[in-house]
Computed example of a mutant assay.
Amino acid sequence: MTHPGEAHAGGLSGRLNWLRAGVLGANDGIVSTAGLVVGVAGATLDSAPIATAGIAGLAAGAVSMALGEYVSVSSQRDTERALLSKERAELADFPDEELDELTAMYVAKGLSPATARQVAEELTANDAFAAHADVELRIDPDALTNPWHAAGASALAFTAGSLLPLIAILVPPPDVRVPVTFVVVVLALAVTGAVSARLGSAGVGRAVARLVGGGALAMAVTFGIGQLIGAGVG
């Protein structure tokens, strides 16, 4: 039998997963857009090309993230629906075997055979499908992930992350825009890295170092490429 605390923990885990996915989406937006605008800034001091590239990168990245998340979650939801449909059919065709299976699952959880049988019978009498979906499949039929919600959240997180380097590079004067953007991005990645590490119960220092190092390297490489292209064109 599912303990109320387990249900609460499951809901909390789901919210943490969504929050972690949002932080990772924001990180993607920060790094990819920062690399793009810093690269263009390495080639030109004109704000128009930088803004155009940044906005285009933001839009393309947000659409790509949303589409990828939609396809991924849709596939997961289709699989869950197929499993639930199969379980319904098995309950209709083999009710006794399914009752024995549910009993065995509760025995595996630590209940005595007699208690497990009683629990399985009571749950089956109340809602056999819900019982099997919970214990056997670990799926809540009434709380399947919505692919549109996932796509929207992913696009929103990427957009929020992308806006930071875009604003940071367009607001300052041309002679300091790259250093300002570099500092803003590094600080933002340090914060999001720490948050994602805390959510994942991982070491903060190592996670922040990886994220900051990767973001700094991306900006350095794209800035260098921008300068080489700008010099070649000039």
Rank of each mutant, 00 (worst) to 15 (best):
V204K: 08
A150C: 05
A66W: 00
G215C: 00
A209E: 03
T222F: 00
L36P: 05
A56H: 04
F129P: 13
E98S: 14
V180P: 09
Y106A: 08
R81K: 14
L228A: 10
G57F: 01
P179R: 12
D134T: 15
Q227M: 07
S201K: 14
A125W: 05
I50A: 02
V195R: 01
V171I: 14
A92E: 13
E97H: 13
T115G: 06
V185D: 08
V185R: 01
G224D: 01
V135K: 02
L19I: 07
R20T: 11
L156Y: 00
V31I: 14
W148M: 15
T2E: 09
A220H: 05
P173E: 12
A157E: 00
E80V: 14
V23I: 08
P4N: 02
I139D: 05
V233F: 06
T2A: 05
W148D: 13
Q227G: 09
V186E: 09
G11R: 13
V221A: 09
L102H: 08
A220V: 15
W18C: 11
A43G: 10
V71K: 04
A130Y: 12
E98Q: 14
S13L: 09
V183C: 00
T159H: 00
V63D: 00
R77M: 07
A7D: 15
L189N: 05
K86Y: 09
P113L: 02
R177V: 01
M105Y: 14
L144P: 10
A143C: 12
F182T: 14
D93Q: 13
G205Q: 11
G226Q: 01
A218Y: 04
Q227L: 07
A7F: 13
G35R: 04
S154G: 11
T124N: 01
G35T: 08
R210E: 11
A218S: 15
T222C: 04
T115C: 07
G35L: 04
A155Q: 06
A153L: 11
A160E: 06
A150L: 05
A231K: 15
A150I: 06
S112P: 06
V31A: 06
G11K: 13
M105D: 12
P141E: 03
A59N: 05
A218R: 03
